[in-house]
Amino acid sequence: MTTMTRRTLLAGAGSLGLAGVLGLRPALAQAFPEKDFTYVIPYTPGGMSDNISRIMGERLAAATGKKVINDYKAGAGGAIGANYYMGLKPDGYSLLQSTNSFYGVIPAVTKVEYDPKTDLTPLVLIGDAPMVIAVSPSVGVKTLQELFAYAKKNPGKLAYATSGRGTVGHLSGVWIANRGGVDLLHIPYNGAGEALQACLSGEAQLFIGPEAAEHILAGKLIGLGTMGDKRWSGLPDVPSTVEAGVPGWAPRSWHTITVHSKVPDPVKQQLATAVNKILASDDVKDRLVKFGLIPGIVDLAGMRKRADDDLVEFGVLIKDAGLALKK
């Protein structure tokens, strides 16, 4: 109990930037890490990235005996935080809480100061966020194929609400429209909460994202599919999009911790091992499941492949949607 409180206190002080005032550091004779970590969170407190970074920072501090100082740099959909991160020393002591958007989406739609292929490396898979396609019951469709049929019969009738332009949700809508050969109208909102509310009130008919799950379980929305080739245990009755008749890659959302690619490989490996050990513990897994994520362990090579695949696949959708940044 006492250690727990001290850890929480440290995490709290860390986000204040006052960690230096508190705490004793156990002097561990280790090559790495030998100093404190800076953990850049490129979003405002309260979101999924913040929730993840709080638990990961706390555990990393406990595992290494070093302080982990959370540094919030929100804005421009994450680009401000990523650019700020590029300015930090590539020594393995600066971490970036990130999603696949930093590899597949943001560099294509916003001006950034990094190359997703050569400058940043995703260390671990913290979890996949199930992208659930939800529809308002007022439309009267129960499956993805029925939705396509409805959209063909009633062109211009269906709109989908997203948390903003150029987000994974937006691109998911573009993907659904492409694959179904139908026309869907995009309505951007400020954040997932507003978008979900619009779908509940009937202002928009579709919403794509993990936030829909609770409302599907409560019977307020109908789940048409979970993007990808696997069902999600949180919504066992909702088929995957592959099962629903749309084969192949689907837009996805996953969370990771990123480091500079310039960090020496042994350090990357050491960090990845340390973080994966945290991710493998039951209580962390349990917490991530409660956040609505699907945890899993993926090695460095596997993460690189995920990032590079997303860059190509999202790139196609971004071009189709006319979202690509003019360089």
Binding site: G46, G47, L217, A218
Partner: peptide
Amino acid sequence: LPSNAVMALMTGAMLIHGIVPGP
């Protein structure tokens, strides 16, 4: 549904305790 930034943080607080905000 959080109606402002403070409420968004409250949903974070619920999630920390394993309570999923929803209807």
